[in-house]
Amino acid sequence: MTETASPKRLNRGRRSQAGWLNRLLPWAIPGAFILIWFVISETEMVPHYLLPHPKDILATAATYIFGKAGNGAYAGRFLEDLMASSFRVMLGFSLAVVVGIPLGVLSGRLALVSRMLNTTINALRAVPGISWLPLAMVWFGIGLKTTVFLVALAAFFPIFLNAEAGARQVSPILLQAGAMMGVRRLRGTFAILLPAAMPSIITGLRLGMGISWAYLVLGELTGVPNGLGAVIMDARMLGRIDIIVVGIILIALIGRFCDLGLNQLLRLSFKSARRLQ
């Protein structure tokens, strides 16, 4: 009821804007990397058919992203691939969230649930995601369902485990304090338990989002017609190493962007996400 705090004070938790160094620092490693790559290519220490020149990559990327469809092998496909891949990631990730967070919180608070789930989940967790691929292909065929299944399965574990740990570590005193102030169990879950567990839940979501992209590519390698993973696999068969590199860079950028977006969305939606980081 009292969101009356002055904006100055509520912003205090933020990283201070310590000028250009802080802004530049995140780009130091990518910058150095590109510089080395440029030098290697210019001096032809590595032949171009193994590692294309940055300027060729730039040209390929431009065609792939902005080119008119039909004007070349991969021209203008980016938007369609991005849409297809994002849809699969979001679907799989959402499934993992919807199942993982409630189950994790329950398991963190109720000994019975935790006893029931722990053996199964820790056994399944030991199975590498890639071993599910053949089975998923038999069950779901090639395409959307297999990819979504793999993404959901892979994202589930970090989301579940972190929600569980977060819920378990909430100090009983906070819940007691709520109880004595007249907060019953259901409201206490949303007003106290979830906010207090929020830092862990966020960690789980971010890890889950990252792994979602990894498993998306795995799912798409199996021969779906579109998507970023499909493009990479397709390019390998055609020997278009420049497209592979473009795909890798794009996935890295999109992954980073999704992470930032997820963080921002959580901070917008939850007071505790804004304030407990």
């Binding site: 009292t2 009356t4 705090a5 100090s171 005193i173 906070l174 007691q176 304090a177 106290i192 906010p195 207090a196 929020m198 007071k271 505790s272 304030r275 407990l276």
Partner: peptide, 9 residues
């Protein structure tokens, strides 16, 4: 036993 995500108020 205060809630760390809430201000004093």
């Amino acid at each position: 036993a205060l809630f760390p995500w809430l201000t004093v108020r």
